[in-house]
């Protein structure tokens, strides 16, 4: 039964990843950044303010900023783990041999993606003890934490899929890496810029009677930062609904768009892995 679900690429990639010093140093870097951030935050809000105590309000703020910082770190690390998935095999001249085995293109792509996602999940889980410090001080519900982690996972899989797609269609890892970071800048930065731009137009339009609320909603709903803010503080989501007049919660649109990104990216990667074969799956 287990043999049926056995993915050789996934097992091999996990084995190689955990034997590599790079993985451990990456994990250490991630935990160090989170630790430094938490220690700094606690110092700033207790020692230097002269209060000497940590209120639930502050705990909530720490949770909010930590969530955004963690999202930024995940967005920063994911391409480095996935953008070389196929192109590095090509560069190391191991891809041709892999493609002549009876593994399907789907198995190879999924194995590559899941091995990277597994490592990122490990990073997130390794950061949980630090993250759970906020529970010491209250102000945050466990369900909030769970929903945030689920959306981390969706985002990681989507960015990972984009990375694997670029890694399949480009010949060099460096090109794939640039393209994947470019996609992240678009999703995280350019969408925010467009959000503010369309919001400004919308407000100007409201003054003159015109309205362009859909685009304002759309740009906000595909931005990971905006999603995190609406998850951390539902009042922000309510304000967006009030501003745009669209009742659909941001997380629903985010989920739909990111699932579509995953499906599109993986389909392209699977089709292009063996680009010259008429029969491909």
């Amino acid at each position: 039964m287990m043999e049926r679900f056995y993915n050789p690429v996934l097992v091999k990639e996990l084995k190689l990843r955990f034997r590599s010093f790079k993985s451990f140093s990456g994990l250490m870097f991630y935990l160090s950044v989170i630790s430094i951030f938490i220690a700094g935050f606690l110092l700033l809000t207790t020692e230097f303010t002269g209060k000497g105590f940590f209120s639930p309000d502050m705990s909530f703020m720490m949770f909010a900023v930590l969530t955004i910082v963690q999202m930024a770190l995940v967005l920063f690390i994911t391409p480095s783990l996935t953008a070389g998935a196929i192109s590095s095999e090509r560069e190391k001249q191991t891809l041709n041999i892999l493609l002549t085995t009876t593994q399907s293109s789907t198995q190879i792509i999924i194995g590559k993606l899941f091995s990277s996602v597994a490592f990122l999940v490990l990073m997130l889980v390794a950061g949980l003890p630090l993250y759970s410090l906020v529970f010491l001080f209250g102000g945050v519900s466990p369900s909030q934490l769970v929903s945030i982690f689920l959306f981390y996972l969706v985002t990681v899989i989507a960015i990972g899929s984009i990375g694997v797609m670029f890694s399949t269609i480009t010949k060099k890892t460096i090109v794939s890496m640039i393209a994947t970071y470019g996609s992240i800048i678009f999703l995280g930065g350019i969408t925010a810029f467009f959000f503010f731009l369309t919001m400004a137009f919308h407000q100007m339009g409201s003054a003159t009677g015109a309205s362009s609320s859909f685009m304002t909603y759309f740009w906000a709903s595909i931005n990971p930062g905006a999603l995190m803010l609406t998850l951390i503080s539902p009042s922000i989501g309510d304000a967006l609904i009030e501003l745009t007049g669209i009742e659909l919660p941001v997380w629903v649109t985010y989920l739909i768009v990111y699932v579509l990104i995953i499906v599109f990216s993986l389909t392209v990667a699977i089709k292009k892995l063996r680009p010259n074969m008429k029969s491909n799956r």
Partner: peptide
């Protein structure tokens, strides 16, 4: 692919994989 065994003119190997693990990986593949 089930009928053929292919050895290219240039090929690489995976770092940090032992000989028996290398064959085991391809066997599973």
């Amino acid at each position: 692919r089930k009928q053929i065994g292919y050895m290219p003119d240039f090929f690489g190997v995976y770092d940090q994989l032992k000989v028996d693990e290398y064959l085991d990986f391809y066997g599973a593949s």
